[in-house]
Nucleic acid binder design. Sequence first.
DNA 1: TCGTCTAGTTATAACTTCTAACGAACGCGT
DNA 2: ACGCGTTCGTTAGAAGTTATAACTAGACGA
Lengths: 225, 225
Amino acid sequence: MTSTGTKNPRERYRAQVRTEIKERAWEQIATAGASALSLNAIAKQMGMSGPALYRYYAGRDELITELITDAYRSLADTLHSTATATATSDADAGAGAGLAALAHAIRAWALADPQRYFLIYGTPVPGYHAPDDTTAISSEIMAILLDACAALPSDGPATPFDRHLEEHREWAGDHPASPAALHRALSFWTRVHGVLSLELAGHFTGMGIDPAQLFAAELDDLLAR
Amino acid sequence: MTSTGTKNPRERYRAQVRTEIKERAWEQIATAGASALSLNAIAKQMGMSGPALYRYYAGRDELITELITDAYRSLADTLHSTATATATSDADAGAGAGLAALAHAIRAWALADPQRYFLIYGTPVPGYHAPDDTTAISSEIMAILLDACAALPSDGPATPFDRHLEEHREWAGDHPASPAALHRALSFWTRVHGVLSLELAGHFTGMGIDPAQLFAAELDDLLAR
DNA sequence: TCGTCTAGTTATAACTTCTAACGAACGCGT
DNA sequence: ACGCGTTCGTTAGAAGTTATAACTAGACGA
């Protein structure tokens, strides 16, 4: 902490108010969705009147952007924890234990607050451009997935997409994973998201099937490729 | 047409205005997202002043609900067309030609208007309950998928999820598909949606990979199970 | 032709985001 | 310890939004 860490009481209070604003915002989003988020309502809930909130956030967009970043950060931290936790219990389970643990961690994180998940992976606003920190966290998440995929054996011949990935591995940074591992990471991401997104949106309700079992089946199939 | 088909000019005009309202609504949604849809702006665009629009739609929710239903209808019609088209060119291609054609039809339909896709499969509004006709169209779509899946051979042993589906096949109606076919239809749905949703939301932009190739790879893997 | 039903109008209420101008309090440096 | 400046919170207000109410003008059918 060189210049301004958390010392002066002005900044302490400011940070405290900002976090309380975000807490109220998360409550509103969880119950009514992000589109129903009202800065006015938050201000009134906190006992201050309307425009006072603009001292802390320049506007709705800035608040939502920070919520998105926080959501990304939360997901990345969760996955990092499970990754290190399963790395500790090394070879007691199968090779796919790491990926399976990540999958269930993602699902639990999403089910805990579906709207938080949709804030990241839901309907995008046409004009919106994600800030750099979210893309950084996103590649951080991909790195975790790649670590787990690199621990798996890759049998079977290389697919055309594997060859495509061989020439397009910018997104993996300098991760030393095989094209098959890159492929499995992408497939993991899309398949987990596919089941999860439909489940959270309620598209399975009334169908009679158990989303958890469908999720597990997709995971098994991915691991048994 | 027993009582009121499309005869009297009053109803003709009314239907015409309603469709024009929906056209303007689609334009707004395509460019700025569903949350930015403004009834007032639509009314002014059409030359009438504000509340006049409420003669045609009781409110924002009713308009959006009808847009969702129309989107479902459009998707179902598209898939029905491709299903019959590929059924005509019977055995000239492999067994998975039907499913592959459906997958590409879905993707083309989604790419044509991403926000329309997200209106169906995007972020749900927490309180919102879909009307019965949309669930009916949804099962109509599932029936098309099941037809294509039933045409495929199902090698491999039955998975635990197959056994789960054997006891929970309400959603398939009275479709005579094997549990493996039910499984493949669900997997098709979730995997297509997984890739497509992330692609349309722009989560692959900047990664360097070609979403079309990832989509094709997922489809190939599903067909080669 | 006349009556009714409908479409459009304005006015209004209750919201929203966000800007501007003002006052008061807090805390830092002297 | 005291002033001065930064910051916070206020009210007022503009420009939007959804939606309702009351009224007018028109078209359609009998």
